[in-house]
């Protein structure tokens, strides 16, 4: 009986005049945009995976990413990217606290947590800038490692495979690895960058009292979804490039 009632009500809620999902248009569209963006990132990561499966050797992340700012030649694999990961997770936490403050119409709370989120985003971008610059100084960029005359000594230290295999396939693998690395972390970094811009816009609107006037802080929630998605993508980028 209760089942029948629920069904009737469900049909009714789709007959117009109600919001069956109880979600506003803008928030639903943000979810659908993120869904499409997930497929874009997914396509990038899967094509990276395809190339990796296609390659006889592949650079060992512990040997490519082992530097830390101001530590010179110290061998510190994964340390710097762990720091970047923690920065992004924490900025996601401060974002969800801003959304929470918004749910309670707490303007001061929104301002405080949005500020921390923006600081986290900028810190992450700064880390990425350092990492890219560092790799670039080691000769890595889009389209690098193509010259067949490249000395084995300039890329063999990226691998932990048999030397003969590296000599035969290592150059191509290094080339592919860096193309995907800069494309995917660049695409992600651009999302972080635009996310920071959106966050600044939301912060200014909050400071100016725009959302208080409107009676709700839904814009914080919508931009928050985007920001969490950026963190979500990084979880996968981190696994694919630095761990696997």
């Amino acid at each position: 009986m209760s089942q029948a009632t629920a069904t009737t009500q469900d049909v009714k809620s789709w007959n117009g005049g109600h919001s069956p999902f109880n979600v506003s248009y803008g928030k639903m569209m943000m979810w659908f945009f993120l869904l499409s963006d997930a497929f874009t990132f997914g396509a990038f990561l899967i094509s990276y995976g395809t190339t990796r499966f296609f390659s006889a050797v592949w650079p060992d992340p512990n040997k490519v990413f082992h530097s830390f700012p101001f530590l010179g030649e110290a061998n510190a694999p994964l340390l710097f990217v762990s720091l970047m990961t923690f920065i992004l997770i924490l900025s996601s936490v401060t974002m969800v606290l801003a959304v929470h403050a918004g749910h309670y119409n707490d303007r001061k709370g929104v301002i405080k947590w949005m500020l921390w989120t923006i600081i986290g985003g900028i810190a992450f971008l700064a880390c990425q800038a350092w990492e890219w610059t560092h790799l670039n100084h080691q000769g890595a960029w889009w389209g690098s490692f193509t010259d067949p005359a490249t000395a084995l000594s300039s890329f063999e230290h990226f691998f932990s495979a048999d030397k003969a295999v590296i000599a035969q396939h290592g150059l191509q693998a290094t080339h592919d690895f860096y193309n995907y690395f800069f494309t995917i972390t660049g695409f992600h970094g651009f999302h972080v960058f635009s996310g920071v811009i959106f966050n600044v816009m939301i912060l200014l609107n909050t400071i100016n009292g725009k959302y208080e006037l409107r009676g709700h802080y839904e814009m914080v929630e919508k931009v928050g979804l985007y920001w969490h998605f950026v963190d979500l993508v990084w979880v996968f980028v981190f696994t694919c490039f630095y761990l696997l």
Partner: peptide, 27 residues
């Protein structure tokens, strides 16, 4: 909650805002 019927009309998006989460008053 889920079973409440909200009478909403087109254009009044603000009432839809975070239907399930909004309107708590005290942080």
């Amino acid at each position: 909650n889920d079973n409440d019927t909200q009478v909403l009309y087109e254009g009044d998006q603000s009432k839809l805002y975070s239907g399930l989460m909004n309107h708590h008053s005290d942080i």
